[in-house]
Write a protein that binds this DNA or RNA. Structure first.
Length: 286
DNA sequence: AAAACTGACAACCGCTGGTCC
DNA sequence: AGGACCAGCGGTTGTCAGTTT
């Protein structure tokens, strides 16, 4: 396949072979192309993508057709903001599997690996950058596991239970003298202790698109994660979480939107009060 | 108002592993 | 056994819309 010219992905230019035949289109898909692909796959089903490209009359590669179908045209693909519980699940699953986007996507119905990957890169990695630490560092993972995820769960719980105005840190104020696990309820501490998600329970985690199911989904996750570790509040891993030189917590003051998921009710999670909370968590040096 | 910057997302590329002949 | 082909995965890049200066 020599002689074709690579173009930018957004220019929708056509490429040719040396003999001038066999034009291959690249770049954004047109509505007409979408329609052709949609019609063909609906009738003939997925698979054999090179054949799909050929038989549907599309001047695209099989790869391109597959990607367009999976990431955009598939009927069950979800679009729009990633909800809080989906974010929670992504953080949780990523802590277990790393950049196994397709595997993670299996537990977020309607979300594609590409979307999750983009979310991770644009939101999570940005946070790590602002903290001046590597996204794969223990430092950052600890921050996620022991501070942000429990905090997130607490916010979700609070939102799902309007009669509960118990502050996030209330539990730790009573039970955790060193305040290392502020905001973590006992079940959450179990949940995110040594082994956040039991692999054989993972398929039980269900995430739906309905906001009204938010509390239930989180509950499912909690139950799935509620292992018999009994590691609260003396989990050795909690002890190992300490403030590292160079961890720029103040950077969070200017960061927002990670958790908001497009829901304005979550704006301000990183308010002064929350910044104080984070600093307590991160700078309580052992 | 316009230029510069940033974030989000769509799409492409290279690589890998599986299957078939 | 091994080569060809294909699907899928993860990383990267380009574009565009929105925001900031």
């Amino acid at each position: 396949m020599a002689g074709h010219v690579k173009t930018g992905c957004g220019s929708a230019e056509q490429l040719t072979h040396d003999d001038g035949t066999d034009m291959i289109r690249r770049g954004p898909w047109t509505a007409e192309e979408d329609s052709m692909l949609n019609t063909y796959v609906t009738i003939h089903g997925e698979g054999r993508w090179n054949s799909v490209a050929r038989c549907a009359g599309l001047k695209r590669t099989g790869k391109s057709c597959r990607l367009r179908w999976l990431n955009y045209l598939r009927p069950d693909v979800r679009r729009g903001n990633i909800s809080l519980k989906e974010q929670l699940l992504i953080l949780e699953l990523h802590s277990r599997w790393g950049n196994r986007w397709s595997k993670i996507a299996q537990f977020l119905p309607g979300r594609t690996d590409n979307e999750i990957k983009n979310y991770w890169r644009t939101r999570v990695q940005k946070q790590a950058k602002q903290l001046k630490c590597d996204v794969n560092s223990k430092q950052f993972r600890d921050a996620m596991r022991y501070v942000w995820i429990p905090r997130m769960m607490e916010r979700i719980r609070a939102a799902s239970d309007p009669y509960s105005d118990q502050p996030a840190a209330a539990y730790s104020a009573d039970h955790c003298p060193n305040n290392r696990t502020a905001g973590v309820t006992p079940s959450q501490a179990h949940a995110f202790g040594t082994d956040p998600v039991d692999p054989h329970l993972m398929p039980a985690i269900s995430v739906t698109s309905s906001d009204s199911s938010e509390a239930q989904a989180v509950s499912d996750l909690t139950e799935c994660c509620d292992l018999s570790g009994g590691n609260y509040p003396d989990n050795p891993q909690n002890r190992s979480f300490s403030c590292q030189p160079g961890l720029d917590i103040q950077a969070f003051e200017h960061s927002n939107g990670w958790f908001d998921g497009g829901d304005s009710s979550w704006d301000g999670l990183w308010s002064d009060e929350n910044m104080w909370f984070l600093q307590q968590q991160l700078c309580d040096v052992v």
